[in-house]
Design a protein around this nucleic acid. Structure first.
Lengths: 121, 121
DNA sequence: CCAACCTTGACACGATCGTGGTAAGGTTGC
DNA sequence: GCAACCTTACCACGATCGTGTCAAGGTTGG
């Protein structure tokens, strides 16, 4: 057989079965299912589980943070919005009439989107 | 005067003073300081505070997640490691001798780093 | 067919997050 | 010089996270 059930996968990867289900719910590793609904972990999933553990340990990350990273890479709008916000720190427009910035509402947002493009730091 | 103190900034942005300090501790918005140590919020910071609020609301984000996004964009190693892990989901090598993958320890990591490069989804 | 395993769902519980308050002391500006 | 504001540093407290355990029921395979 080429696929392990959840307890076997837990033993060879060091994760607990509970955590494997949690990791799946975060969308990070979603194993195939048997016709009856059993999770089936293949070599690829097992390896990814091991490297995931290593990634979390070496960079002191949490699963939630990896879940957010996944969201970032799946949701293009979100990614662009977040990047735009950070870019604004650099690409600050100064052509706003003094005294007017208090009423300068966030339609600036669109301007930010137009000015996309990250300079190599 | 062109810069507001923390309470004034709080009033015009809707954040609480407490939260402004928190946002600062996360590294998201770090206002200048007066010679005596008072935080001084200029137009740019005020605008960023407003757009930050909007970003969090429209995408249902938390400050912690934005803090992580900041980490991602500041720490090149972290960003590459995270990306490499996600890329591995796609760029799965199959040239591992069958039955041997159980002992295939995570020195694969280096291979992953070597195989960087995102295909346009 | 039946023991051993898996499924989802619920309750639990310490740790961290998001947010507020308060205290002790320094800064500003009229 | 002094009232009003700011600073940092704590204690607090509900909410969520990470993780475990248990219960009721379905699946697998010899």
């Amino acid at each position: 057989m080429d696929a392990l059930t959840i307890n076997e996968a837990a033993e060879t990867t060091g994760w607990s079965p509970r955590m494997l289900r949690y990791v799946e719910r975060l969308g990070l590793i979603e194993p195939e299912r048997s016709s009856g609904g059993y999770r089936l972990y293949g070599p690829a999933e097992l390896q990814r589980l091991r490297t995931l553990r290593e990634l979390l340990d070496t960079h002191d990350l949490g699963l939630g943070e990896m879940g957010f990273a996944l969201r970032l890479r799946r949701d293009r709008d979100l990614r662009r919005a977040v990047e735009a916000w950070f870019e604004a720190k650099v690409a600050r427009p100064v052509d706003v009439p003094a005294g007017d910035w208090l009423s300068w509402e966030q339609d600036k947002h669109s301007r930010l989107l137009a000015a996309a493009g990250a300079p190599p730091s």
